[in-house]
Design a protein around this nucleic acid. Sequence first.
DNA 1: AATGAATGAGTGTTCATTCAT
DNA 2: TATGAATGAACACTCATTCAT
Lengths: 220, 220, 220, 220
Amino acid sequence: MKLSKGVESTVSDPRLIEERRTQILRAAIKLFSKKGYYRTTILDIAKEAGISSGLIYQYFREKEDVLYLALMLVLETYEHEVPPKEEDFNNPVQALCASIRAYCMVVDRMRDATVLAYRSTKSLPPDRRVFIKDGEARTNRIIRKCVSDCIQGGYMREVNKDLLVYQYVMFCHAWALKYWAFKEKYSVERYIDEGIQLLVASFLTPRGQRALKTSRENNR
Amino acid sequence: MKLSKGVESTVSDPRLIEERRTQILRAAIKLFSKKGYYRTTILDIAKEAGISSGLIYQYFREKEDVLYLALMLVLETYEHEVPPKEEDFNNPVQALCASIRAYCMVVDRMRDATVLAYRSTKSLPPDRRVFIKDGEARTNRIIRKCVSDCIQGGYMREVNKDLLVYQYVMFCHAWALKYWAFKEKYSVERYIDEGIQLLVASFLTPRGQRALKTSRENNR
Amino acid sequence: MKLSKGVESTVSDPRLIEERRTQILRAAIKLFSKKGYYRTTILDIAKEAGISSGLIYQYFREKEDVLYLALMLVLETYEHEVPPKEEDFNNPVQALCASIRAYCMVVDRMRDATVLAYRSTKSLPPDRRVFIKDGEARTNRIIRKCVSDCIQGGYMREVNKDLLVYQYVMFCHAWALKYWAFKEKYSVERYIDEGIQLLVASFLTPRGQRALKTSRENNR
Amino acid sequence: MKLSKGVESTVSDPRLIEERRTQILRAAIKLFSKKGYYRTTILDIAKEAGISSGLIYQYFREKEDVLYLALMLVLETYEHEVPPKEEDFNNPVQALCASIRAYCMVVDRMRDATVLAYRSTKSLPPDRRVFIKDGEARTNRIIRKCVSDCIQGGYMREVNKDLLVYQYVMFCHAWALKYWAFKEKYSVERYIDEGIQLLVASFLTPRGQRALKTSRENNR
DNA sequence: AATGAATGAGTGTTCATTCAT
DNA sequence: TATGAATGAACACTCATTCAT
């Protein structure tokens, strides 16, 4: 992943930029997630990353850039993990489920970071927010493709695709956003299984139902 | 609504407290929603409310209290508007739909404030966050009751109630959270109608289907 | 003198603004003169003025504004003291000499501040520099008027007025700029007397010479 | 010119020291003149000089040393160009005029650097300032010698030599210091000619007048 | 009860200087 | 000798909070 998009650095060596930025962003995401963007100081980030505060300014022009690339990094992780891998499935329903499952798993792994994205996107100037939205849209499109395949293959009823896709996305995000409510009743796995039962199975055709069952046997 | 819950004031007259706090909170919600909590200064709020900055400290102990009560006020608005009114329906399915509809409408009316709740809850100390969650839970319970009634009345299939309720809540919130994506394709009304089609109708029994239809004729 | 020209304040009471600004500028001029603009911190100024650092920002938008008004204050002092008063003279030559004398005296009184003006004008953005130049030009015009009167009255030979006026100005400023060289040989008074002998007397007509002599008797 | 006076270097080869220092100082003078000493960073200078920032510290102990030698370089240029060359004149009046003319020409060529000297001398510690003053004094002495020769040769009236010399110096410097005022009315050449008319011719004896005229014919 | 001037701790950012390579 | 990444002290500026009036 290239952490560069529109953020300059005074350092020339690209390998070093990549390495340092990752190091700084890792620290930033951790702290932003825990304490929020505004409560986190540049010095906090520097200490967490084990470097001096001044060095951050050799890789980022300002604090806001750190937030921007931090959010980008989160979105890119989604985009990288959500797409269903060929070997994970043998029909579109399985692919859809694999995506949802993968999405929930990343969200679980980066629970704080997911909440961060909801909290802090508005702290960015509008022109930057656009890129964040683009990043999110790209992940949405992956899910959308899965749903389309299901419908076109006759596995799923004709439904309002837009809304359903967003519902899937919200379902995945909700695991982070409402974790405080879910954690007492569900593990991620059960959350996913029950979710699929509720939000996927309900919309499948008989053919889709059969495809879904196969899928579940394979996943065990 | 009593805007007092654990927030002290140096002013004694309760009527005045109520009045001033409402005045201040209205200004605060507007500004917090637009610029975010940290970017909004006490002076901003004072100016927007047409009072002096010092006066705010006679009704709130600190800035955080303003945020706390602002969020409370938003949640209370939900709680006040979501419950289905007797006259709005004549069966549980209609009641559920009325709730969802009402919820979406408040969210639409207070779109920025809804986003605010997502952004800023974490800016509060944990003990306060609990009250916010309670407030949200209370609204959730209203929806939950509607779903329960539907199921018990044989209008809706046996589904994972928890998950479905949260899905309904997320659906309503999504109107604000993903407004940037929806606004191009939907009006609130269509959003609601399509959403009910997708997320309510799909789970209804034949009996529920009939009840839903009645409902829709009534609502026109 | 109104210390306002294009510099805003968050404080409303004009009397207070006037008072505080003068207080701050006095401190600033002292420190800027001694240590230079960049070596002087806002905290230095605050301490010297006996107030908190934050307060400065209620009367000036930024540090540069303090410099700007400080320089303005110096120029206004010149403009206020240089014009010859009616009672000081009874002919144009005397008026000219009175002006030069007065100019040198202010420069002497504000020696460091005069040097400051030379050092720090370039620290201001070009649009502000213009106002500084205007201020200086206004004082120059006073001298210019005196020279014109002398020439028109037949007291002074026809000379290059522009150049002579600037030479007078430089003579006055030099007392501050080259003080390190002059202080060992001259007192201000002698500096002035000798300067007038050299730079005024030399250009006078016989009539001017007589007028000059009268003048000197009167000034004792 | 040896650019060493009290400034150490970690580099041993004297030729290299000379070369690099000149390279760095040229860049520094350009930038200091344009943006001022404090606004110019070491990195700016390094870039302008086409070297790395670290290298500057092998030829100068600290930033202040760069300023110091930069000012020295300017003064040495004066000292080198102001002295009247034998072939330029055939009497003391002509020599004086040649000096003034030469002085104005260097000042014109290094207008920004001249202003720099006025702005930044005070940025140096007192012990260094002394050397700067010495440098200036040396140039003054050249003019002084010319004036003395004029007086002793009976070309010029007995005047206050000190003051007149400083007046000449100020006249030359004023071309840079008040360039914003002069540039609209004069070219350097006319400035010089009119200046000599005003500040030299006026003090000459009849004999001096004749010498001056010869001078002017020669210079055409 | 209301005002708004005053405080000062807190923080983003810059930049001279060092030092490993 | 030359580079440029790394350091960290320093400083301008903001803003929640207090308090005299």
